[in-house]
Computed example of a mutant assay.
Amino acid sequence: MLKGKSFLVAGAGGLLGSTLSAALVAEGAHVIVADINLDLMNERLQQQGLGQENSQVTRVSLDLNDVVSVDKLFASLELDGAVNCTYPRNKRYGAKFFDVTLADFNENVSLHLGSSFLFMQQCAKYFERTGRPFSLVNISSIYGVVAPKFEVYDDTKMTMPVEYAAIKSALIHLSKYLASYVGNSHFRSNCVSPGGIFDHQPEPFLQRYKGHTFGKGMLDINDVIGSITFLLSDQARYVNGQNIVVDDGFSL
């Protein structure tokens, strides 16, 4: 479905971004992998079997909060689509609701939602400039769709950060806004909203979370990849402004 196409994966040093990059390469695509931390990205990609010698992969340094570098990157590429897997945040991100300061809330929303806006804007500008069919996929979350189930965090130090809810819900609406604003069948803007992804969380949390699903519990990272590759492919050519939820029923 993706052979011969070219995609930008921002945040390719993360768990989702690196796994997605390997999946796209396996489908025959050329992938421009971008991250603010090149060492981490190269390590993660090596773990996915994408060594430095792979001709299907182009590696670039990218800070999505740097307007000049983002402009330069989009001016230098030929793309069929892009996926934003980044999650910029400050060092105090993750505090519980009453411990979040206004300054930290504003900074985290600005870092993530602001950079996502810039990425989306650049994708639309690229399409307007080139006229080349383009598929943008943003990564939201079930907690951009429904309120948190805070009971799953009992007896752990974990919480569902308030900034996360604000950002992920806004991403869904911005994706719809962009699809409507461009208003062209050849430019698609969609979201994928995963449920929780397993990353060695505490066992009490894993068991409580599983009780809200139909049996899967936390997702494996590969459970999310198929929806993203579908949206990038021509099989989704008229899917526009939509949000695909992948959560085994958690949000029902």
Rank of each mutant, 00 (worst) to 15 (best):
M1C: 04
K3N: 11
G4Y: 13
K5S: 10
L8A: 09
A10D: 05
G17S: 08
G17P: 00
S18C: 05
T19K: 15
L20C: 05
L20V: 09
A23H: 09
A26I: 01
V31Q: 00
V31F: 02
A34K: 11
I36D: 00
N37D: 15
G49V: 01
G49A: 11
L50N: 03
G51P: 03
Q52S: 12
S55D: 12
T58H: 12
L62S: 06
D63Y: 02
L64D: 01
A75V: 09
S76T: 08
G81Y: 04
T86W: 03
N90W: 05
F98G: 01
F98C: 06
F98N: 10
D99Q: 13
T101E: 10
T101H: 13
L102R: 11
L102S: 10
A103N: 14
N106T: 05
S110P: 00
L113H: 07
S115C: 10
F117C: 09
F119V: 15
M120S: 11
K125M: 02
Y126F: 15
F127W: 12
E128R: 09
T130E: 07
R132M: 09
R132V: 09
F134P: 01
S135V: 02
V137G: 00
N138H: 10
I139E: 04
S141R: 12
G144D: 03
V146M: 11
V152D: 08
M158H: 05
M160A: 10
M160D: 06
Y164N: 04
Y164M: 07
A166R: 02
A166C: 11
A170N: 07
K176V: 09
L178D: 01
A179I: 04
S180F: 07
G183D: 06
S185N: 12
R188C: 08
R188K: 15
S193W: 09
P194I: 13
P194M: 10
F198D: 08
F198L: 14
D199G: 01
H200K: 12
H200P: 01
F205M: 11
L206C: 14
Q207F: 04
R208T: 12
T213S: 10
F214K: 15
G215K: 13
G215T: 02
M218P: 04
L219M: 15
I221H: 02
N222D: 13
V224T: 14
V224W: 04
F230L: 12
L231N: 05
L231S: 03
L231Q: 06
D234T: 09
V239C: 13
G241K: 04
D247H: 04
D248I: 14
L252P: 06
